[in-house]
Design a protein around this nucleic acid. Structure first.
Length: 334
DNA sequence: CCCGTTACGGTTGAT
DNA sequence: AGATCAACCGTAACG
């Protein structure tokens, strides 16, 4: 409840139990792509190195900067559809073994290897729900029962691309339409920054170095929207989650956040949430929250307070070159 | 010094 | 409405 922000050893603000804001996660990835060492990123952004390490590792592995899906329950494997099929198999062949049913579920495409019930689950179903064929699982039947055509496969497919993540609509980001989730995994077309719209300028031209990452994650999936896809349409991204930070940032209606990430110049639009989010600390104003003052301006770059990014990265880079110089920057930030 | 890993105390959200 | 539970979080500290 109290989402008061805490301060870590590096002086960074965080909310215990909650993910760092996307803006910061993004910065971590961007800086890393610019060649800045994790330890420096940690210091600059005042995020524990363990966290930087984790976010970077996740990004390398999944292409997503987003936090994983928090809360909720795992999708049920024994959906009404599955139960129905099991019942059918049993009716047609009363002597069928559970393992045979299992094989059939897979063979018939009712399930895929990810949502295939265990033999013991099938046995339980046979015992509990199908013992007397009279009743059926009412529980969710309402939701999706009617359709025989299994649809289970779909959701799980995403898995392969994104292990755990669900995608919240990131607070500061482009709320992608749900469909995004489905397509494309890593279009190479966008660079990280592009996607976000963040200072596209910055790197654009001269940065060959950008790997054109796959930040696509915005489109990930989330555990919760699995089977019971309640809302068919948008299932992917937006609806289910307002996600974590949404809260922090408190997007009034969900859209504003975008600014923060992006360029942010003008952001007066929405005022601070009623409650002051701890993260606000980063930037006094909303806009800042991302790139704001917090982290770079102070020092040398002096360039653009706002768009700041430009200068800084370079600075970092150079500094990383000479090891010695490094700290200065950090220091200056302070 | 750097960084991967993990215990810990915490939050969330479906059941 | 409240309790459980399992997933995730970031920090801190260890190695």
């Amino acid at each position: 409840m109290d989402d008061s922000g805490l301060v870590n050893q590096l002086g960074g603000v965080f909310v215990n139990g909650r993910p760092l804001p996307n803006a910061i996660r993004l910065r971590i990835v961007e800086l890393a792509q610019l060649g800045i060492r994790p330890c420096d990123i940690s210091r600059q952004l005042r995020v524990s190195h363990g966290c930087v390490s984790k976010i970077l590792a996740r990004y390398n592995e999944t292409g997503s900067i987003l936090p994983g899906a928090i809360g909720g329950s795992k999708p049920r494997v024994t959906t009404p559809t599955v139960v129905k099929h099991i019942r059918t198999y049993k009716q047609r062949d009363p002597g069928i073994f559970a393992w045979e049913i299992r094989d059939r579920l897979l063979a018939d495409g009712v399930c895929d290897k990810f949502n295939l019930p265990s033999v013991s689950s099938i046995s339980r179903i046979l015992r509990n729900k199908i013992g007397n064929l009279s009743q059926q699982s009412q529980y969710e039947s309402g939701k999706q029962a009617p359709h025989p055509p299994p649809q289970p496969t779909l959701p799980y497919n995403h898995l392969y691309s994104y292990p755990t993540s669900k995608v919240p609509t990131p607070p500061g980001m482009p709320t992608l339409p749900g469909h995004m989730a489905m397509h494309r995994i890593w279009p190479s077309s966008h660079s990280v920054t592009d996607i976000l719209g963040i200072r596209s300028i910055t790197e654009q031209q001269s940065n060959p170095s950008f790997p054109s990452a796959k930040l696509e994650e915005w489109s990930a999936i989330n555990r919760t929207n699995f089977p019971p896809a309640s809302s068919p349409l948008v299932n992917g991204v937006d609806k289910p989650h307002l996600e974590p930070e949404a809260k922090y940032t408190q997007t009034p209606n969900g859209l504003p956040t975008v600014n923060s990430y992006v360029t942010a110049p003008s952001i007066p639009p929405y005022h601070p949430p009623t409650q002051v989010s701890p993260y606000m600390g980063y930037s006094a104003t909303t806009s800042a929250y991302v790139t704001g003052p917090t982290w770079q301006p102070a020092s040398g770059s002096a360039l653009s307070p706002h768009s700041c990014d430009i200068a800084t990265p370079l600075a970092f880079k150079s500094m990383s070159a000479n090891r010695d110089a490094i700290h200065p920057v950090a220091a200056s930030v302070l």
